[in-house]
C-alpha cells in the first residue's frame, strides 16, 4: 500500500465513522432518555449522561400494555394483509403485461404507467374513500388507500418477468397442457422469488411505518396502529391515560406522570422490531433500493 492510499484510507475511515455516529447518535439519546430518571430530565434536559436512571417509564407503559399490544396487533395485521394482497395484485397485474402478445397490452401498460405521472391528490382521494367507499374508521382505511398497489412496482415486476422468464419454458408448459394460471403459479412465481422478496420488503417497511392513512381516515383511537399512537402521544401525552383509569388505580394525578421519559420509551417500543430485524433484511433492502433506481 502506498503512502497516498494509506492516507486516503484514514481520511475515509474518519469521515465515514463521523457520519455513522451522526446517523445513530439521536437513537442513542432516545434510548438513554427513556431509561433516565424523570427528575434529572426535568432539571437538566435529555442527556447522554443523566444523573440517575429509572425504569418508571417502561413500568408505566407496561401498565398501559393493553392499548400498546392492541396497536401492535393492528400494525402487524395491516402490514401482513396489506403486503400479501398488494404483492399478489402487483404480480398478477404485471405478468399479463409482460406478455408481448396480449391484446390491448400496450393500453393497459399505459394505464399503469400514467398513474406515475399524474394523480388527483388528497382532496378527491379523500372524497372517493369516504363518500363512495365508506372506509372511514375501518381497518381497511389503513390498508387500501394509496399503499396497496404501486404502479412503479408493477412496471418493475413486469420488466423482471420480461427479462428472466424464458418464453420457451412457458411455451412448453402450455404444450404440456398446463393452463395459464398453473403456469403462473408453478413456473413464473418460483422463478421470480428475488423480485417478490425485494418488493415485498419495501412494501412491508412502508406499511409498518405508515401513519398518514390513520391520520386522514381514522378518528376512532381503537383502530390506531403503533405509528398513530406515537403520532398522537407526542403532542398529547395524556392520550394513553385518558383511555384507561390509570390515574384512579395508581393514585397519581396526570401531572405526576413521568411524561418526558414516557415519550422516549414509547418511541423506543415503536422502533424496536424494525431495528432488531434490520440485520436480517439489510441485504435485500440494499438490493431493492438499487433495483428501483436503475430499473
Amino acid at each position: 500500500m502506498t503512502k497516498e492510499t494509506r492516507r486516503w484510507q484514514w481520511i475515509s475511515h474518519i469521515c465515514l465513522a463521523s457520519i455513522s455516529i451522526f446517523c445513530i447518535i439521536p437513537f442513542l439519546l432516545l434510548i438513554i432518555s427513556s431509561i433516565s430518571d424523570e427528575m434529572s430530565i426535568l432539571q437538566n434536559g435529555y442527556s447522554f449522561l443523566p444523573e440517575s436512571f429509572s425504569r418508571d417509564a417502561y413500568l408505566y407503559l407496561w401498565e398501559q400494555r393493553g392499548q400498546l399490544i392492541r396497536a401492535y396487533g393492528i400494525t402487524i395485521f395491516v402490514t401482513v394483509v396489506g403486503t400479501s394482497i398488494g404483492l399478489a395484485l402487483t404480480a398478477l397485474l404485471a405478468y399479463p403485461l409482460s406478455r408481448k402478445d396480449l391484446p390491448l397490452g400496450k393500453f393497459f401498460t399505459f394505464l399503469v404507467f400514467f398513474t406515475l405521472l399524474f394523480n388527483g391528490g388528497l382532496v378527491p382521494t379523500y372524497y372517493v374513500y369516504t363518500q363512495i367507499f365508506d372506509i372511514k374508521n375501518t381497518i381497511w382505511a389503513l390498508i387500501i388507500p394509496v399503499l396497496l398497489v404501486n404502479g412503479f412496482n408493477v412496471l418493475l415486476m413486469r420488466t423482471f418477468f420480461m427479462n428472466t422468464i424464458p418464453d420457451a419454458v412457458l411455451e412448453s408448459a402450455r404444450i404440456d397442457g398446463a393452463g395459464e394460471f398453473r403456469a403462473f403459479f408453478s413456473i413464473v412465481l418460483p422463478l421470480s422469488l428475488p423480485i417478490l422478496a425485494t418488493i415485498g420488503l419495501l412494501q412491508t417497511i412502508m406499511y409498518w411505518n405508515d401513519w398518514m392513512n390513520g391520520l386522514i381516515y381514522l378518528t376512532d383511537p381503537s383502530l390506531y396502529s403503533i405509528q398513530n399512537i406515537l403520532n398522537r402521544i407526542l403532542t398529547d401525552i395524556q392520550f394513553l391515560t385518558s383511555n384507561s383509569d390509570y390515574a384512579a388505580q395508581s393514585g397519581k394525578t396526570i401531572s405526576q406522570l413521568p411524561s418526558a421519559t414516557i415519550r422516549m420509551a414509547i418511541a423506543v417500543v415503536g422502533i424496536l422490531p424494525i431495528i432488531v430485524a434490520y440485520p436480517f433484511f439489510q441485504k435485500y433492502l440494499v438490493k431493492g433500493i438499487t433495483i428501483g433506481s436503475v430499473k
Binding site: L92, P96, G120, P124, V149
Partner: peptide
C-alpha cells in the same frame, strides 16, 4: 390473462383514476 390483471387494474382505477375525475 384478463382475469389475472383485473383486480390490480380495478384497484388503480379506484385509487388513481377516480380521484383524477374528482
Amino acid at each position: 390473462f384478463f382475469i389475472m390483471l383485473a383486480p390490480g387494474l380495478l384497484y388503480l382505477l379506484i385509487n388513481n383514476y377516480l380521484p383524477m375525475f374528482g
